[in-house]
Design a protein around this nucleic acid. Structure first.
Length: 229
DNA sequence: CCAGACGTTGTT
DNA sequence: GTCTGG
DNA sequence: CCAGACGTTGTT
DNA sequence: GTCTGG
């Protein structure tokens, strides 16, 4: 699963890829949690232009009556994304990219939960595959929300947790965002990220509390790479 | 036909 | 145990 | 995802 | 809105 991540550095590479103007600076984030605003990129269905936006993490489908009924849709399973009413249309028409410097996963053993940090080896950022929607309230309120797609863990990650976020390779980003891409081709992108392109290490439980949004969250504390078998 | 759900994770 | 908030 | 609350009445 | 269950 993916329920917490980081975003630091700058997104100039992605911005250039999408032909966007230089965007405003954002403060580095070391502990982005569900319900918080995320930076997302998508192809605006109206203008056909790529767009950068902020959306709250936790997708609220447009047809929901009361958002309070459906909190916590922070992830969408890749395997069933085309069947679930909450994600079906979004998968077809409202896909997005959510950049991250790295993400956290917790390894359970008995009562203990040990956090690990995962980051890219070859690029500055991961690009999560996401879905978004807009919910309109009866009094004109609007909620722009999104979810991160998950898939089975790759080999390295499977020592820690059996699910992982879908990460789109840089070469596939435009295919993922393009509204002309066939569903079958989109589906093929929803696979585990290659082991060799990510690294990980144990970190302090400081990260557990979302209020601790600081660089210490990603400092190595113990093992680099989990034991494989 | 209408009513009611619409999600993931993990754990048992 | 279960829900809410971040 | 984890942390932290989990309640009411009335008064300030 | 759309699907499932009764």
């Amino acid at each position: 699963m993916c329920g917490r991540f980081t975003l630091t550095g700058n997104l100039i590479w992605l911005i250039r890829l999408l032909g966007l103007e230089q965007l405003q600076k954002f403060a580095p984030r070391y502990n982005i949690a569900p319900s918080q605003p995320l930076i997302v990129f998508y192809k605006d269905p109206d203008s056909g232009e790529y767009k950068q936006d902020f959306q709250l993490w936790g997708l609220v489908p447009s047809f929901i009556k009361d958002p309070a009924d459906v909190r916590n849709m922070i992830n969408a399973r890749a395997e069933t994304i085309e069947q679930k009413p909450s994600f079906k249309k979004a998968f077809r028409y409202r896909r997005c990219i959510i950049p991250a410097s790295g993400f956290y996963e917790w390894q359970k053993s008995g009562k203990d939960k040990q956090p690990w940090y995962f980051s890219p080896t070859e690029n500055e950022h991961f690009y999560f595959a996401g879905l978004w929607d807009i919910w309109h309230g009866p009094d004109g309120e609007q909620l722009d929300t999104c979810a991160i797609i998950t898939t089975e863990a790759n080999r390295v990650m499977s020592r820690i947790h059996h699910r992982m976020p879908v990460i789109i390779a840089p070469d596939d980003l435009l295919t993922w965002l393009n509204d002309e891409t066939e569903p079958a081709a989109l589906k093929r992108l929803l696979r585990p990220f290659p082991d060799a392109r990510m690294k990980c290490w144990k970190i302090d439980k400081l990260v557990n509390n979302p209020a601790n949004d600081r660089p210490e969250c990603i400092e190595p504390k113990g093992e680099l790479q989990p034991e494989l078998f």
